[in-house]
Deep mutational scan, measured.
Amino acid sequence: CSVCSEPIMPEPGRDETVRVVALDKNFHMKCYKCEDCGKPLSIEADDNGCFPLDGHVLCRKCHTARA
């Protein structure tokens, strides 16, 4: 995971895991958050999703503030 540096592995008792890929980086679902404010990001293409800027994973509000 690009945030916590832990491997993305299935939880005990499970055969599969879910990971998020954004900007060629891999994330646990729980680690997929705005780099500035820490708001959890949605994997859907909506207002709560990722608004990347200069290689950073940001929420819409933080993207607008940086732009």
Rank of each mutant, 00 (worst) to 15 (best):
C1G: 02
C1A: 02
C1I: 00
C1E: 03
C1T: 00
S2E: 05
S2K: 04
S2F: 15
V3D: 04
V3C: 07
C4K: 00
C4G: 00
S5V: 01
S5C: 12
S5P: 00
E6G: 14
P7H: 04
P7C: 10
I8G: 02
I8A: 00
I8Y: 02
I8L: 11
M9N: 15
M9F: 06
M9T: 07
P10M: 15
P10W: 10
P10Q: 14
E11T: 15
E11G: 08
E11Y: 09
P12Q: 10
P12N: 10
P12M: 10
G13R: 06
G13Y: 04
G13I: 05
R14N: 13
R14S: 10
R14M: 15
R14E: 11
D15R: 09
D15P: 10
D15K: 08
E16K: 10
E16T: 05
E16W: 00
E16C: 04
T17R: 10
T17H: 09
T17D: 09
T17P: 10
V18Y: 10
V18G: 15
V18E: 15
V18R: 14
V18S: 15
V18P: 09
V18D: 15
R19K: 15
R19G: 09
R19P: 15
V21L: 14
A22F: 07
A22C: 08
A22R: 12
L23F: 05
L23A: 10
L23Y: 11
L23C: 12
D24Q: 12
D24W: 00
D24S: 13
D24Y: 03
D24P: 02
K25N: 03
K25L: 06
K25F: 01
K25R: 06
K25C: 04
N26Y: 13
N26H: 12
N26S: 15
N26P: 06
N26C: 11
F27T: 04
F27E: 03
H28F: 00
M29N: 15
M29C: 07
M29D: 10
M29Y: 10
M29V: 13
K30R: 12
K30V: 06
K30E: 14
C31P: 01
C31T: 00
C31R: 01
Y32H: 02
Y32D: 00
Y32F: 13
K33H: 04
C34V: 00
C34E: 00
C34K: 01
E35V: 05
D36R: 11
D36T: 08
D36I: 14
D36E: 09
C37K: 02
C37S: 01
G38I: 09
G38K: 13
K39N: 10
K39W: 09
K39C: 12
K39I: 09
K39Y: 09
P40S: 14
P40K: 12
L41R: 03
L41G: 03
L41P: 11
L41A: 02
S42D: 07
S42G: 15
S42H: 06
I43Y: 08
I43L: 09
I43G: 10
I43M: 12
I43V: 12
I43R: 13
E44W: 01
E44P: 07
E44G: 08
A45M: 10
D47P: 10
D47W: 04
D47I: 12
D47M: 08
N48Q: 12
N48A: 08
N48Y: 09
N48F: 07
G49D: 06
G49F: 04
G49I: 11
C50E: 04
F51V: 09
F51G: 08
P52G: 11
L53Q: 05
L53A: 11
L53I: 11
L53R: 10
D54H: 07
D54A: 08
D54N: 08
D54P: 00
D54F: 05
D54R: 04
D54Q: 08
D54L: 07
G55M: 04
G55N: 07
H56C: 09
H56R: 13
H56T: 07
H56L: 11
V57I: 10
V57P: 08
L58H: 05
L58K: 03
L58R: 06
L58F: 12
C59H: 02
C59G: 01
C59W: 01
R60W: 04
R60N: 15
R60A: 15
R60T: 05
R60G: 05
K61C: 11
K61V: 10
C62K: 02
C62Y: 01
C62N: 00
C62E: 02
C62L: 00
C62P: 01
H63D: 04
T64I: 08
T64E: 13
T64A: 13
T64M: 14
T64L: 10
A65L: 12
A65P: 08
A65M: 12
R66N: 08
R66I: 04
A67P: 12
